[in-house]
């Protein structure tokens, strides 16, 4: 519910990382896990509201990639995808050892030519 703040943080992070060129960003890709507690539509809508005010980023694209939940099975010593919220490996062993799904991170930044 604080998605505008998250979007502002994204731009702040990029400004710090690329102080000379960050206004020339063409596309930002965000990876958001299904356990990260942030709904992609709220980030996407917050981004659209942000660029409406910050018109220098009007041409910038934001793409969100949803990451599935991946857990680790101690019995099989392998990872499995949690589908339909079933934290159970194909071998039948339940597991709450999360390997992926809690992330919210900038995964790619593309600059204009």
């Amino acid at each position: 519910m604080h998605e505008i703040a998250i979007v502002k943080d994204i731009f702040k992070t990029l400004e710090q990382a690329y102080p000379e060129t960050y206004e020339n960003i063409a596309k930002i890709t965000i990876e958001a896990g299904l356990l990260c507690n942030v709904q992609p539509i709220l980030i996407q809508n917050a981004f659209e509201a942000f660029v409406l005010e910050e018109t220098r980023f009007r041409e910038t694209e934001l793409e969100i990639e949803l990451l599935p939940i991946i857990a680790y099975c101690k019995q099989c010593t392998s990872q499995f995808e949690v589908r339909f919220h079933k934290f159970v490996c194909v071998c039948g062993q339940p597991s709450d050892q999360i390997v992926q799904g809690e992330e919210l991170r900038i995964s790619q930044v593309i600059f204009k030519d």
Binding site: P40, I41, Q44, N45, L52, E59, E61, I64
Partner: peptide
Amino acid sequence: LEWYEVNRTIIKRESAAGRMIHLDKPS
């Protein structure tokens, strides 16, 4: 599109058949 992309104003992406699309629509 993913369900959460329906309000995007700018989308640059290939279509299913491989056409490069640059969508720039009003919010």
